[in-house]
């Protein structure tokens, strides 16, 4: 039986990744003087924002015991869709944003619908919709980048408010929203229950399929936010954008302590996971490490984080 001490130890283990993050930041601050400059930190925040948004979305999904591989394709589809309505002197900026988000919601809801109705594993379903989504993005854009976007639209990914890059503001607001949703709402609690023991959740009166519909839809919405941010930042709707983004997002969630078997995970952990990935690739850039080695390092960190996590669990 667990006692107070081992419980404290376990709580401490949850912050292990946070500690690792702080230590890495400190080491970097001393080894590369450029690291702790305001402009570099803003730069990291902006770079991290898209991956973090996707990671928040996939965290919900993974907590319910599912997975979503179609994130990257959703980024492309929603980016292309938003860009199509974002040419100068056509519609006010709210229109492309709204249509882009709606496309993400529809895509996510479609994932949820197929998963709950067909009982095919989410891995397979979203593997399929990943390819379908990529195809749709190419069809909608006829395979060409959608460029010439309005300045107001480009502000979303490139502008500043009071010196803070707009993507960072979106990131902070989304984080607060997702944290509240997960920790303080009935839907959030139901996500943990469904991922922890789906049958028991059902027997407790939880409408499991509804919960799943919600998480895939929310995941679609957050992917659309990522898609719009990316399109705005690169000032082009790229049908080939976002390839592989799903893996970075899943990596951030896992590094942050979300278990792929479902039932556990926090938004704070995922945020730190995304920041850690961002900080490390940024510092490797600063240290002039080529991107080839960066990939090796990143892979090792993913495995290392999970090994640390499972060692922490073994102590109980």
């Amino acid at each position: 039986m667990e006692n107070r001490f081992t419980s404290k130890l376990r709580d401490f283990g949850q912050y292990g990744i946070f500690l690792a993050f702080v230590i890495i930041c400190l080491v970097l601050a001393f080894s590369t003087p450029k690291f702790f400059t305001l402009s570099n930190l803003m730069n990291i925040g902006t770079q991290v924002s898209i991956n973090a948004l996707l990671a928040f979305g996939v965290t919900f999904v993974i907590i319910t015991g599912g997975i979503d591989l179609s994130l990257g394709s959703m980024v492309a589809v929603t980016g292309v869709v938003a860009a199509t309505f974002a040419h100068p002197d056509t519609y006010p900026v709210i229109i492309p944003v709204f249509i882009g988000l709606a496309a993400g919601v529809a895509f996510g809801a479609f994932n949820g619908l197929v998963i709950t109705k067909s009982k095919v594993p989410p891995f397979i379903v979203t593997l399929g919709t990943m390819t379908i989504g990529r195809g749709i993005a190419l069809i909608l854009s006829k395979g060409r980048p959608v460029s010439n976007l309005s300045d107001t639209f480009n502000f979303i990914g490139g502008g500043n408010v009071l010196g803070i890059p707009f993507p960072i503001i979106i990131l902070i607001i989304s984080f607060l929203f997702c944290s509240l949703l997960l920790k303080k709402t009935i839907l959030g609690r139901f996500m943990y229950a469904v991922g922890g023991n789906e049958q028991a959740a059902r027997a407790s009166g939880i409408r499991v399929n509804r919960v799943k519909m919600w998480v895939y839809t929310i995941c679609g919405l957050l992917s659309a936010m990522g898609g719009i941010l990316l399109t705005s930042r690169i000032t082009t709707g790229q049908p080939n954008a976002g390839a592989g983004f799903e893996l970075d997002a899943i990596a951030a969630a896992i590094i942050g302590g979300t278990s792929t078997s479902g039932g556990t995970g926090t938004m704070t952990g995922t945020l730190i996971g995304a920041l850690l990935i961002g900080v490390i690739s940024n510092s490797l850039d600063l240290l002039n490490v080529t991107s080839y080695y960066q990939q090796v390092v990143m892979g090792a960190i993913i495995i290392g984080a999970v090994v640390l996590d499972s060692m922490g669990k073994g102590k109980n």
Partner: peptide
């Protein structure tokens, strides 16, 4: 199989069917 969610706390398990 059908009774409880092992990873959730006692509190979150007992309130699961009456959250509203």
């Amino acid at each position: 199989g059908l009774g409880f969610i092992p990873e959730l706390s006692v509190k979150h398990n007992v309130t699961l069917a009456s959250l509203p």
